[in-house]
């Protein structure tokens, strides 16, 4: 709703949309009413402004997608970003929210078809930024889970921490983002045959990235979807027979990707949908 309103304002600051469209399309003439001190049309001044808008958006995308830019090189990245900006201009004035659809754009960009991992690296970088800006919350104290009676713990549901994200890929995106962004001086070995599931967490101030063992992604995805612990463990075993529940649970608890146990409403089937229904009643 909010985005719709802002988007309309962006397209029509002067009532007919010419200004916004001319900003992004260099083949359009400078809009009526853009004049210099002499009262004459000032297309050169408008071109300076047009250039600043595009370049600052390219830089903003480059700040968000650091590893993608490094993988593609500055020249290619700049051209790609320019193409994206023209087709997907910002719908919000807040630059930290710009670029959500950039990974999908890259996935559908024909010249990048030979580099299918680039889009997933971008998805991980977007998740990193969203985790950084997510609401602060105290992570779940593991002792709270330890205090649940053994015969009830399998039915426990756990809330995702607001900063926790999960990105699964058939490509080694964890190794790629380390080598091209967070640890360029001490890069890990990159095995392009290896898929990696990455957990993004920010229990306090800094964002952590963790590579999950087999089944870990299926397990956490189920928990984040509102499945009970026992059910989530079953789904993880189905996805990966070598799934180790103690290891994955310990990894997730120490990473701080949960915020609280979901209170039991007595029916044992509390989910987001039930929650919404209760809210409506």
């Amino acid at each position: 709703m909010q985005a719709d309103r802002i988007s309309r304002e962006r397209k029509a600051p002067d009532g007919n949309g010419d200004f916004g469209q001319a900003l992004l399309d260099a083949s359009l003439p400078s809009p009526d009413g853009v004049i210099g001190p002499d009262g004459k049309p000032a297309p050169k001044r408008f071109n300076v402004y047009r250039n600043n808008v595009i370049v600052s958006l390219i830089e903003a995308l480059g700040d968000t997608f650091v590893a993608v830019r490094r993988l593609l090189g500055d020249g290619y990245f700049g051209a790609l970003a320019r193409e994206y900006i023209v087709h997907h201009p910002p719908t919000s004035p807040v630059l930290i929210w710009y670029g959500k659809s950039f990974p999908n754009f890259m996935a559908g960009f024909p010249p990048l078809q030979a580099y299918p991992y680039i889009a997933d690296v971008g998805r991980l970088e977007w998740a990193w930024l969203q985790s950084y800006h997510a609401a602060d919350a105290e992570p779940l104290d593991p002792a709270v889970l330890g205090d649940v009676a053994p015969d009830a713990v399998g039915q426990v549901r756990i809330e995702r921490h607001p900063a926790a994200r999960l990105i699964s890929s058939p490509w080694p995106i964890y190794s790629l983002i380390q080598a091209n962004r967070f640890a360029p001086d001490d890069p890990p070995a990159v095995d392009m045959q290896e898929g990696q599931d990455v957990l993004v967490a920010r229990p306090e101030i800094e964002v952590d990235l963790l590579c999950l063992p087999p089944g870990g992604a299926a397990f956490l995805e189920a928990l984040f979807d509102g499945a009970a612990l026992e059910d989530a463990a079953g789904r993880a075993l189905t996805a990966a027979p070598e799934f180790q529940l103690p290891v994955c649970l310990q990894t997730a608890l120490s990473a701080g990707v949960f915020s609280a146990l979901v209170p039991d409403n007595g029916q044992g089937h509390l989910s987001a949908k039930d929650d919404a229904t209760r809210g409506a009643l």
């Binding site: 992570p139 104290d141 593991p142 002792a143 889970l145 330890g146 649940v148 053994p150 015969d151 713990v153 399998g154 229990p203 306090e204 612990l229 026992e230 059910d231 463990a233 079953g234 789904r235 075993l237 189905t238 027979p241 529940l245 103690p246 290891v247 649970l249 310990q250 608890l253 120490s254 701080g256």
Partner: peptide, 28 residues
């Protein structure tokens, strides 16, 4: 069909995970 994990196994795993955390690696 989903494989199942017994309630007892889950309870044991939770105990192991939580105990491992409080002894060796304090969270954060």
């Amino acid at each position: 069909k989903n494989k199942a994990m017994s309630a007892a196994l889950v309870a044991g795993a939770v105990a192991t995970a939580v105990a491992g955390l409080s002894v060796t690696t304090p969270a954060h």
